[in-house]
Amino acid sequence: MILEEEDWIRKAQQGDTNAMGALFKHHYSFLYKYLLKITMNHSVAEDTAQDTVIRCMENIARYNGTSSFSSWMITIATRLYIDRTRRNKRETKWLENEQRRSVTQLRWQMERQGEQWTDLLDGLAQLSDEHRIAILLKHYYGYSYEEIGSMLGIPAGTVKSRTAYGIKQLRKELNAHDEQT
């Protein structure tokens, strides 16, 4: 599969649309699932995934293979999402309501499939984007602090403190849930 992917990338960089189609089809699911976890919102995840694919297609010639293709994609996706949330900061109130509504939707969708919406997922949804992104990239996707720093364009120390703070907040949330039940 790796050889096949390298072949797709090489051909896509030469402008082969068939190879580009196969390459992005192969990575779309990973990209969408990543975005769904960092945005906790179906429509934002879908919109950002589509924007990311277009941006990656435009810049495919610049991909130099120093990181995996999926890492390159999620770096672009994360930056696009952060830019979008910064631009929409004026609509914070509306976004907060939208976020609550989409978390309820996710929860409903998960429970409909017989899966439990856990306190951790609730806690993650309540974290700020920057803490959620740092935690997911570090502990779920397994990137190092330095890698995440270069992905987000911030120092590794900042990533470390965001991760630590995020986990602390999560524990606080979980303990609060435990005390209520």
Binding site: T17, G21, A22, S29, K33, V53, L106, E115
Partner: peptide, 18 residues
């Protein structure tokens, strides 16, 4: 696993987009 991959476009749609 529970949330799947949303509406993933087909290969042909990706090719058209490219």
């Amino acid at each position: 696993q529970a949330l799947g991959e949303g509406r993933s476009p087909s290969v042909e749609e990706f090719q058209m987009l490219a």
